[in-house]
Structure formats: C-alpha cells, structure tokens
Design a protein around this nucleic acid. Structure first.
Lengths: 234, 234
DNA sequence: TCAAAAGTGTTATGAGTACACCCATGG
DNA sequence: CCATGGGTGTACTCATAACACTTTTGA
C-alpha cells in the first residue's frame, strides 16, 4: 500500500563530528566523493537506506568513517530547503557526535580523505554545511552550559586543567581556575585517582575519572557549568 | 541530474499545536482523514510538497487548520523509524506551535474535525504521535524554564495571575505568587496598563503588555523562570 | 634556584526562597 | 460586611564571582 500522488524525496544523514585531543577541540571533515563539488570539504554524510532508522543510519555513517561505535550522537535538526543540494532535492537530517580523538585511531582517513581541523582554520564547507556547523556549535555551547556532555569528548582519565581547557575551547574564552575546579568538583561527578599526569606540567596534575552512575543520573539535570551563560549564548 | 540508485522516501510534516485560553493549556488535535486509522485522533499533518521548504510546509499546514499566520513555530525533531507509518515508509518532521486560543476563531474545525483537548484528557493518538507529544511537552518545559516563550500563548493584554496559571499549567504545579510576580517583573519585559481585568476577580488585576523590543532581545537570553528547574525536567 | 603550572581559601554581593499581611471590590 | 483573589515586603540562605598566594618539581 502507498499514499498516492505524493512526492518522494531523497534523504541524507550528515554528521558533525567534534573531537578533543587533550588540548584543542576539533572538527572532522571529509572531502566529498561525488560530483559536483567533488574534492571540496564537507561534513561526513550518506544516504538514508530503505530499512534503517535515522539513528541507525547516523551510527553506520559514523562507524564507516571513524570505526567507532557507541559514540555520543544527537539529532540536531533537519534541513530541507528545496535547493540546498544542486543535484536533486535532498533532505538532510543532521546529527552531531562527540568523540575522544585519541580513541579514534583509524586508517579510514585515507578512504574518505578525512582530516581534523581546528574550528578557527577550517576550510569553507559545501552547500549549507556552514549553517549546520554554526547551529551545532551553538547547540553544543548551550547544552554544555547546563549538562555535563563535554565529558563525552574526554578520555577515561583526565585532569582538571585539561577539562578546563576543553570548556575554554568550546566557549572561546578563559575561566578562573579556582572557581572552575570548585564548580566541577561540587557536582560530585569526578573521582580522584592516585596518579598524576606529568606530561603537561612539572608539578603534575591529578587524574580524575567520571563517576558513570552519577553521570547518567545528572545528564538530564540542570547544572550551571558556565558563569554568565548569557554572554556566550548569543 | 539525480543521485543514482538511492531510496526516495515520503516526508510528512506534523504539527503539535499548544494553545492557552486564559485558564488552561490545551492541545489541538484532528481526526485522521485517511485510511488506516481513519477517524482516530492525530496531530495535524500533511505531506511535504516538491517545492516548499520545511518551514513553509509547516506554515501552510498550520494555516490550513487554524487560519493563523505568523505563529510561533519551531522544529522539534524528525522521526524516521522505518515502520512508524504502516502504509509506507514516511519520515515525519515535527514542529510545535504556540498560539493564543482566543485569536483562533475558525470554522475549519468542521473541515478537519479539530478539537482542543486538555492535556489531561486527550485521547490516544495514532502511530508515534504520543512520543512526539511527550517530547514536545518536555521541550516546552525545558525552553520555558529559560526563555520567555510562553508569552506566545497569551493575548496582547494579560494579567500576572493569568500568566502564572499558564506557567502552572505547563509545569503542572503551583508557584508562590509573590516570588512569581517579582521574578517576572524583574525581567523588565512587561508594561503595566491602566485598565484592569475585572472578569476573573472582584478586585481586578492589572493588564500588562509585552515590551516587544525587550522581548525579542531576551528570547535568546538565559533567564530563570522556574524555581528548582531540575524538579520539572526529568 | 627559578619558572611554570597546580592547587587551595576568603569575602562580598545578589539571587532565590520561604513566609504573612493588607487591599479592593462585588455580591 | 465579608469572602475572594490581587498585590506587596522582609529576612535568611546559598550560590556566584572576584581575587592572591603557596606548592611542587623539572630544567
């Protein structure tokens, strides 16, 4: 059975992949394989297949590129301007992903010509991918101001100074380190480890792990990670 | 030109229409016109046409049903389970709308068999429309806790007690009226009028109007409309 | 021994919250 | 005159934010 006389449209899934390498927040881009705009930088995407859900498609595409499964993935928005793709009308359901770059150690770079870019010196993107990225950055800032999602970008063990530089990267600013660590520790989400990271400083900074249980409980809660959030959220 | 060999899928737009009548927050539903599930209650929807954007389609559908234009309308999420519609695979891009019920004075009820329901005694909805509604309610609570969007539901002139009962309806709770009015007035968004509403009380309550300029400026800002927001946001 | 980053403590301000009374009016 | 809902004021608590010094250690 079908609904008669209605328009059927192509649907793409595009993924905005944010990563953190311990110092900087970065964006994973690929070089487009199809004409037109072949070879230009673009978000990683693919077409929705007949028997998969949107989430399944996003997972599949993310795994194709990075080899990673179980990654934080969230639907951002659907873009549907009739002329957004010059080839033929294509809806794009956009997801964004947060991954720990060090956990991503893949060769697939070669296959898709993928590359990590600092947000500051990313290339121009095709179609409406610039709008998608801008919206994703806004959403990330918004959500991270209230919920502990940035932990998704960190390795299992991390230091408070690393965490702070992640937040500073996301908001493109600096925070007072005393207030920052107090606020973070007061959430009760972190468990102090015995070892220190001696790579990034002489004194060394204690490692922390995430308390997974509390983390899951607090993902939905309203916390206040950012001072004066208005300042950063347009 | 076309992308070859890819699946083309039907796309629907579904609208979750919240309204406020001065006392209660309500939901506008229609009786489905197509088989299967014909006659069952459903969100107002329609198919995406070839040459319209998603926003245009949502506007068109909303206008068909309510006769209203320029309504607050926001994309919620896209639902894409392969079997969500038993007839054939159909993506649904879901929008939610906020309208002042008194401004809505249309006959089109008849055409679409539309009806306003209290959230408490709404009928069971078809397909995955229950999930859509639950998500919309969650989003509305979330957003209204931080941004002054509930004003979209109010008539041009309204009283503080009305406003409070709107908030109380959305969060299904009661608030302290002293703290509520202080908080609302401290935003500077309201302009006190000379007249009073003498319908709902003997003493009468002063009308207020929204300061449109400040309102637009503060739509994006982080305000705190709700005490203990965690309590209400799962 | 010194430079560089980690880590900790105090205070002032303002927002949030709990709470109780007076006011105006129509019936 | 009184019941009903509207409107205001105060004091306490707690989170936030501003701010400076000591500690550790590798070079």
């Amino acid at each position: 059975m079908r609904y008669s006389g209605q328009t059927h449209i192509l649907t793409a899934i595009d993924c905005i992949i944010f990563g953190f390498d311990g110092n900087d927040i970065k964006l994973l881009l690929v070089q487009r394989a199809l004409k037109p705009e072949k070879g230009k930088w673009s978000l990683m995407g693919g077409f929705l297949q007949q028997d998969e859900s949107l989430e399944q498609a996003a997972d599949r595409i993310l795994k194709q590129l990075t080899g990673l499964e179980g990654v934080y993935l969230e639907q951002l928005k659907t873009f549907g301007d009739p002329h957004r793709d010059p080839v033929e009308r294509t809806l794009s359901v956009v997801y964004f992903a947060l991954i720990d770059i060090h956990q991503y150690e893949k060769q697939i770079n070669d296959e898709y010509h993928a590359e990590w870019f600092l947000l500051k010196d990313k290339p121009r993107l095709i179609f409406d991918h610039e709008d998608m990225l801008a919206l994703a950055q806004q959403k990330l800032r918004y959500k991270a101001a209230l919920h502990p999602i940035l932990f998704e970008l960190l390795p299992p063990k991390f230091t408070i100074p690393q965490l702070q530089s992640l937040y500073e990267g996301v908001y493109d600013t600096t925070f007072d380190n005393r207030n920052f660590s107090r606020k973070i520790l007061s959430t009760g989400l972190l468990v102090k480890q015995k070892e220190k990271d001696k790579v990034n400083s002489k004194k060394g900074a204690f490692y922390y792990k995430l308390d997974k249980k509390k983390y899951k409980a607090k993902l939905g809660a309203f916390l206040n990670f950012i001072p004066n959030p208005d300042k950063f959220l347009q």
